[in-house]
Simulated scan of single mutants.
Amino acid sequence: MRNAPHLLINTPDIEIWPGGLLHARSNHDARLLARASHVLRRKQDGRYLAAQLAGGLMPLLPRLADAAGINEALAALDTRLTQPARIPPPPGTLPLDRLQQRLDQLGLDEARYAERTGLALVAEPAHLALAGFDRYRRPLWLTRAAARAWQRLQQAAAVDGIALEAISGYRSHAYQLGIFERKQARGLSVEQILTVNAAPGYSEHHGGNALDISSPGEPAAEESFEHTAAFAWLQLHAATFGFHMSYPRDNPHGIVYEPWHWCLASRDDAPN
């Protein structure tokens, strides 16, 4: 967890990925990504912006200097490149000052939504750790504490003959907004989507401490997961590793029952 290649550096507009974890659509980009120590990736649409090579930064789109947030991202990258790899970066979170703009796009009022649901704003971590890979072989990003806890949980389940698979972990505010936009494009209303997905800024996934869990052969994020041996094992043992199920039946937040969604408790709530 402490090596630089295993860390995602997070800024408000741009994620800085370690090299070797991203796939390119073109042969040209694939060759660059294969040689890169880090890749700058825009949160809004997943576009690759630049690759950090041994000889310097290689732009992957025209007018890189005009990209939103590029100066902040380059400063964060420079800090990481000049810091010894053995020293983990300090914990921290990103500001929430752009959240209202995303809620405005959905026609949501921040104060009314928070009062109605009882959900708290969740800031994004400044750094995330590679916790392995999910069912779809995508990198699974969590906070360092959640990554360690998830790996211990998964290993303990395996000892008992239970296979646990991660479906998703950290999600940015921008990604959460994209979920709403894609569902709206399919004809769903914002109110319909809010019964399944928290508004951008209010999902536990933003904080890097929550993940969706399933087991081999089971559909992802379906209520049927509660009938599996994996869910029964989680009910008995997850709390030992600091995890709790956030959205039980009839929860006060207006979120549907989610037996697949588990979150690492805060230090104040975590078991001794």
Rank of each mutant, 00 (worst) to 15 (best):
Q176W: 07
A163S: 09
G207K: 02
H38K: 13
E222V: 13
L8K: 14
D134K: 06
F133I: 08
R267W: 01
G207M: 05
S203R: 00
Q100K: 12
R80I: 04
R102H: 15
L194H: 05
I179R: 14
E191C: 00
P18K: 00
G208R: 11
H253A: 10
T79R: 15
L77P: 08
A174G: 11
P252K: 14
S168D: 05
E226M: 02
W262C: 07
Y170R: 01
L106P: 02
L130W: 06
G187Q: 07
E181P: 04
D250Q: 10
D160F: 06
S26C: 09
A229R: 14
W233I: 08
H227A: 13
I162S: 07
G19Q: 02
D45M: 00
D13C: 05
L49T: 04
P88G: 07
H206L: 02
G19F: 03
L40E: 10
I255G: 05
G20S: 09
F133W: 13
I70Y: 04
L77W: 12
A265K: 07
A157E: 04
R249I: 09
D45K: 02
P259Y: 05
Q151K: 15
R116C: 02
Q101Y: 13
A199T: 09
F231C: 13
D268F: 09
Q235H: 11
H28T: 10
Q184N: 11
A163W: 02
K183D: 07
V122E: 11
S246V: 15
I179L: 14
N27C: 12
L177Y: 06
R144E: 14
G19R: 05
Q192A: 14
N27M: 09
P89F: 00
A239W: 09
A229T: 05
L61F: 01
C263E: 14
E72K: 07
G46H: 05
T240Y: 11
H253P: 08
Y257E: 11
V39Q: 01
R31M: 07
C263I: 12
R186T: 12
S224G: 04
A156M: 04
A111W: 03
A123T: 11
Q154R: 15
K43L: 02
I87V: 15
R267V: 01
N10E: 09
A232E: 10
Y113W: 04
H261N: 13
H206F: 03
E223M: 03
R116N: 09
W262G: 09
P91Y: 11
F225H: 00
H244W: 07
F231L: 08
A30N: 13
N209W: 02
S215K: 00
A111F: 13
P219V: 11
